[in-house]
Design a protein around this nucleic acid. Structure first.
Lengths: 250, 250
DNA sequence: CTAAGTTGTTCTCAGATTGAGTTATTCTCA
DNA sequence: TGAGAATAACTCAATCTGAGAACAACTTAG
């Protein structure tokens, strides 16, 4: 049998039915707190539960394109602002019983966005909102989305260490203090301002100066801060490591 | 409509046909060189081309279980020795046209194994072998497996930095020199023996002494080396960073 | 307008870590 | 038996880090 004949004789229905979805763990920073985009499901299964935005991959669509489309649908975002959102694949969740309808394999993605407008509930969702991650209780979440979110948050924390992606939570021009606030928010503890400043400026390609400064000082005083934009590095060398957690094992 | 009625009325065939496969980038070290497990495809598409071991996920099988099964089938491995192989999810590849038959979404996995016996060609494969990664030319590979392998190798290199997984390339008891050889092989350049020794012993939980030593000195002389086994750390703190590559950008 | 408080940025300095080289010792092979 | 090789320990200068201090530029309260 040559390759042509093989393809003609091939029936996709011979294979077990599996559906592939994309889900998005979309993170942003609002009012100094890390927020997560959630929708409340309108239809079964898990109607009324909170869930990650997501849906079936369309036939002609790449996985990343599907994730970006789902994100666009929930946030109402498009064009340049959507393009500025960082989107990467997180992991794939495919346990046989994670969806009661059928075998559903979900390719989860992770998104970092600057502060975005409130989301728009579309047809699939009763409601949609940016929820502070501190307000999460995994019990109310549909499917295995609690676990996906945990994995996404850990990945986000670790990505800030060795990539310049913290800048994706900010507008194109930002101050070192704003950048530090991103790290403090995502990592959940304060950093030494002086050391952070020294380190960021010493890592090649992390940030580059715009030459300009802010129009005003900080809200409660202080000098005008210099403005920077993201540099061209894809990886931070050397990395900005999280302070070691207290050893649980002595 | 309540949830029960919904599930009864649900027809999986309403959704576009997608197949889900698992592929495995299995790495081992043989004779001081990094090797990759490949099979030569017996059936179209890409009959006669080299490809990663893999196949369709079975209906009741977790993704990780499917990957481990595929690995077992190709290597003929089972039991304790199979269990010692490290297996983790790498990434999912799902472009619409990556397989001419139909939409195939492949969940790639990455495996680290100690030196294993030569593989066994099973029904899907004309042939199977451990190929040195230096002998790879991506042109001869089926599907997008060249890209998957590249991603797997880069992931392997980076995993050695911040996890103790280098030990998974070795037998349960090993010397520091053997461990250094793993790093040198995967990273592709020599390391300073003294500094490596100091560093490995200083990272908490990386290795623990067995108290014993090798029976003989090295092949070409030298004292007997102390034996170690893997410690209980899941992450290396601080990490063993790769020497910075030469800057391409000045 | 002034005083008090806040913030961005730069310094300082001790301690830890790193890279590179050296040494003593133990072993294999010819 | 001697040459060469490898383990494991040590040394030392250069670099990096964490913690704190200094200081000027700004804010707001009064």
């Amino acid at each position: 049998m040559n390759e042509q004949d093989f393809l003609a004789a091939y029936d996709p229905r011979d294979y077990p039915a599996v559906a592939v979805t994309v889900d998005v763990v979309a993170l942003t920073i609002r009012e100094g707190a890390l927020h997560l985009l959630l929708i409340r499901r309108a239809a079964p299964p898990y109607a009324g539960h909170w869930a990650l935005p997501g849906g079936f991959v369309r036939p002609d669509e790449d996985l990343a394109a599907g994730a970006r489309r789902e994100l666009a649908e929930e946030t109402g975002l498009g064009g340049e602002r959507l393009r500025r959102v960082h989107l990467e694949q997180l992991a794939t969740y495919g346990g046989p019983d994670r969806d009661p309808r059928m075998r559903v394999v979900s390719v989860a993605h992770l998104a970092f966005a600057p502060d975005l407008p409130d989301p728009i509930a579309d047809t699939d969702a009763e409601d949609a909102l940016w929820l502070p991650v501190t307000a999460l209780t995994s019990r109310q979440l549909a499917f295995d989305h609690g676990r996906i979110i945990d994995d996404g948050l850990e990945r986000a924390r670790s990505k800030l260490e060795y990539t310049p992606l913290a800048t994706r939570f900010l507008d194109p021009e930002f101050t070192i203090t704003e950048l530090r606030a991103v790290y403090e928010t995502v990592w959940g503890h304060p950093l030494h301002a002086g050391n952070f400043h020294r380190k960021v400026l010493s890592v090649p390609g992390f940030v580059e100066s715009t030459g300009a400064s802010t129009e005003r000082g900080g809200a409660r005083g202080g000098p005008r801060a210099k403005l920077y934009r993201a540099g061209d590095a894809r990886l931070l060398h050397p990395a900005l490591l999280r302070p070691a957690r207290e050893e649980t094992v002595r």
